[in-house]
Amino acid sequence: MSETIALIDFGAGNLHSVHNALMAAGAGNVAVTADPVIVAQADRIILPGVGAFGACRDALFAIDGMIDALEQRVGKDGVPFLGICVGMQMLADKGIEYGAHDGLGWIGGTVKAIEPADERIKIPHMGWNDVTPTAGHELLESGEAYYLHGYHFDVADEADILATTSHGGSLVAAVGRDNIVGVQFHPEKSQAYGLAFLQQFLEWKP
């Protein structure tokens, strides 16, 4: 295992939990890093994130050279990329939460508030819920995972949706294209299901 996994550190609250879960899933060399030079050479890249879209996005984009490094390594070199929760939401064109903010724009669509028609549906969507694969993607298996979010990814092209869940209507649980995958649920908090998912990602050859 000489692979380097870059876990991007922009101050996200779930950074250490993701790190712990990666180690438990058998990751060898995880670099918790804010250094674009390390990201530009990494074999796999993971972007965590919790909290508000704008705050996460601003912290990530404020790291000098980070977006260029990500676009080179993920967009051009094609190394496997995983975004978790707000790390997944930042793949969108934009997020509307305390104002409108630009995302990475790698997966078309907008992140917006969950607004169920039934007012008895509680927001945030908090707890264990289904992961229902919709695209036959090799990383996503049917199961139960932990979700914790008040905003959701409204994906522009249905072909980019890899899995859904249900909370007052269908919500996107996972997105992806080519070497990119993003999950709304928290694999680092989803016990056996989550660790198995991370293990699969570590072995994924897109």
Partner: peptide, 30 residues
């Protein structure tokens, strides 16, 4: 706990400020 448990953890008691909250969240509380 966060090193060995992979479930969500809530911590209550003695949280007075946003900095108290930050310390717990950065330690691995959800």
């Amino acid at each position: 706990t966060a090193e060995v448990c992979f479930m969500p953890v809530t911590v209550g008691g003695g949280v007075r400020t946003a900095d108290d909250a930050r310390a717990l969240l950065m330690a691995g509380a959800d």
